[in-house]
């Protein structure tokens, strides 16, 4: 009887001990909150990435994997003309997608942030409705719109404007840009909207009061202050679209093939994992470097505005 009481007392104290400990130590609280996500991140992201990095320094001979360290895969990835062309095209297409998407998203975000007075939430929901369907479905929707017997062609033909379907609509880089720009629009609108919404309206009044008309006000106040949102949006679009392979494989045709398509082929059909890994690592590194450089460049350029 006495022992049980002592045990319960002990449990009570240790329980209180943990809560008290958590209450007192901020870092312990932080770790406790971070813990579960960290476990998943390490197991599902960092570990496979590490493995990928390891693969990129190995080599494949027929069916056997040679795990001796070599830079051969990287040499091949960078020296082969076809791979280099694919890198260029991927980065070029996703750069255009990024610019187009941000340019189209900015006015929409601006409109909701500054012009909509009531029910902004409804507007945001409306803008994100396309994202309630799956990514694949949205890509197929564009196939339906741009296709040989698609909405545009049949529409133009029934209007009598053209006599044969236009073939340049689908299966080329432009189709990839159009599809990706639409598919990623919400990822640009939302961060830009948030940064615009945060701007204190009295700053714009102050700029007007100090002699600026609408254009100068935008360039000197609104744009610099919404820059974090713009950069966030750009990174959010540039990074994943460079590595996208669904859209190029469905609407890109042979001229719209991007680096991710060849990486997929390496892992899947050809079965050369080390080369696929090297291509993937190289593409990651390039995206990372370009992102950092362009973010810095844009920051500097906008910082010059006074």
């Amino acid at each position: 009887m006495a022992t049980t009481e002592a045990d319960t007392e002990h449990q009570r104290v240790s329980k209180a001990g943990i809560t008290a400990f958590l209450r007192r130590s901020e870092s312990a609280r932080g770790l406790a909150l971070l813990g579960p996500t960290m476990v998943i991140m390490v197991l599902a992201l960092a570990a496979p990435l590490g493995l990928l990095a390891a693969y990129s320094f190995w080599s494949q001979h027929g069916w056997t994997l040679d795990t001796h360290f070599t830079l051969d895969q990287y040499t091949r990835a960078f020296s082969r003309q076809s791979y280099r062309a694919l890198f260029y095209r991927s980065l070029w297409i996703s750069s255009i997608v990024t610019v187009v998407t941000v340019l189209l998203a900015y006015p929409m975000a601006y409109f909701v942030a500054f012009r909509v007075e009531k029910s902004k939430f409804i507007w945001l929901i409306l803008l994100t409705i396309p994202f309630w369907t799956s990514y694949l479905l949205r890509v197929f929707a564009w196939k339906v719109i741009l296709g040989y017997n698609g909405v545009i062609n049949s529409g133009l033909m029934s209007l009598g404007l053209i006599h044969a379907p236009l073939e340049f609509l689908l299966y080329n880089p432009t189709a990839v840009v159009v599809t990706l720009a639409h598919a990623w629009a919400a990822f640009a609108i939302l961060p830009i909207y948030v940064s615009l919404e945060k701007i204190d309206r009295s700053l714009l009044e102050a700029a007007a009061d100090l002699g600026d008309g609408a254009v100068r006000r935008f360039l000197r106040i609104t744009l610099p202050l919404s820059l974090p949102g713009v950069l966030g949006a750009a990174v959010l679009i540039f990074v994943p679209t460079t590595g996208d392979y669904v859209t190029p494989s469905l609407v890109g045709g042979s001229n719209g093939v991007m680096i991710a398509n060849i990486i997929e082929v390496m892992f899947d059909k050809i079965g050369n994992w080390p080369l696929g890994a090297a291509l993937a690592m190289a593409s990651m590194a390039m995206v990372g470097i370009i992102t950092l450089l362009s973010v810095q460049a844009i920051r500097l350029a906008v910082g010059k505005v006074k």
Binding site: L203, E205, A206, A208, D209, L210, D212, G213
Partner: peptide
Amino acid sequence: PPHKRPSNMVFQSYA
């Protein structure tokens, strides 16, 4: 419009 007026303002929030 405000940018064409001969006045300047000190805002309550300072802005």
